[in-house]
């Protein structure tokens, strides 16, 4: 990837003077390009505390690109998509089977956040020229089994999925919460594994995403546990 070449400002941008009425009508930006300068500025890189700061030569710019993704990062994203996809298969069962309104609400919120996250993971992989798992295409299917999804930590076995599918009412609510807690705990295991892998989890966007998944799933587990405790006699 070619990084760090400068972008030429729009040479033909119209000049927007306040007297011409920019205040009320949209105007091209920037007004005649940059109005200050970054050209030829000095670039330095400090050392560790107590160490000297070095000057970075212009030719070194390519080296400043930062940490790129690793194989483990790609595998994490490729694995998390089917993991999330199964959560959507589970939430798809809720409208026809769940009894408690709390379970309905929880499933709705999960569906929204898992869909958003799947979209983010797909874009992340696409942007980096990586394969987007085919399993993603199945997410949200009403009657999908889990047989076609690769097994990631915490994911329901085909037997568990069948058990959930055939449950109704209070029994479904309990199973759904128990299985979703197991499922979410798997995501936390996956995040832990990512950060325990040498060199992995350091690319900015991926770090942010994995941290977010970790926090979000922990919070949902806590909510599911308290709902489960409330439902249990």
């Amino acid at each position: 990837m070619k990084l760090l070449t400068s972008i030429s400002p729009l040479a033909t941008a119209l000049v927007c003077l306040p007297v011409l009425g920019c205040a009320t009508s949209p105007a091209p930006f920037p007004p005649g390009g940059d109005t200050g300068s970054t050209a030829g500025a000095r670039i330095v890189q400090p050392g560790a505390p107590g160490e000297a700061t070095r000057v970075v030569a212009g030719t070194d710019l390519e080296a400043l690109g930062g940490v790129a993704h690793t194989e483990a990062d790609v595998a994490f994203m490729q694995g998390m998509i089917p993991h999330h996809a199964q959560a959507l298969q589970m939430t798809a069962l809720v409208p026809d089977r769940a009894a408690h309104r709390g379970v309905h609400q929880m499933a709705l919120r999960m569906e929204i956040s898992q869909r958003d996250e799947i979209a983010l993971m797909e874009r992340w992989l696409r942007d980096r020229g990586q394969e987007v798992p085919a399993a993603a295409a199945h997410h949200g299917m009403e009657h999908a089994g889990s047989g076609d999804l690769p097994m990631m930590p915490g994911m329901l076995t085909p037997e568990q999925m069948e058990q959930l599918q055939s449950a109704r009412g209070a029994e479904f609510d309990r199973l759904f919460l128990e299985f979703m807690i197991q499922h979410h705990e798997g995501a936390i295991v996956m995040v832990d594994a990512l950060f325990s892998t040498d060199g992995a989890g350091q690319e900015s966007e991926l770090f942010q995403f994995a941290s977010h998944v970790d926090a979000d799933q922990r919070a949902e587990i806590a909510r599911m546990r308290s709902l489960l405790a409330f439902l249990r006699p």
């Binding site: 760090l4 400068s6 972008i7 400002p9 729009l10 941008a13 927007c16 306040p18 920019c22 205040a23 009320t24 009508s25 949209p26 105007a27 091209p28 930006f29 920037p30 007004p31 940059d34 109005t35 200050g36 300068s37 970054t38 500025a41 670039i43 710019l61």
Partner: peptide, 20 residues
């Protein structure tokens, strides 16, 4: 770097793109 803009109650004096 070429989006349209709208302004009211202030004047846009300068802009500078990110550094190399």
């Amino acid at each position: 770097h070429d989006a349209e803009s709208a302004v009211s109650g202030m004047e846009h004096l300068a802009s500078l793109q990110r550094a190399e």
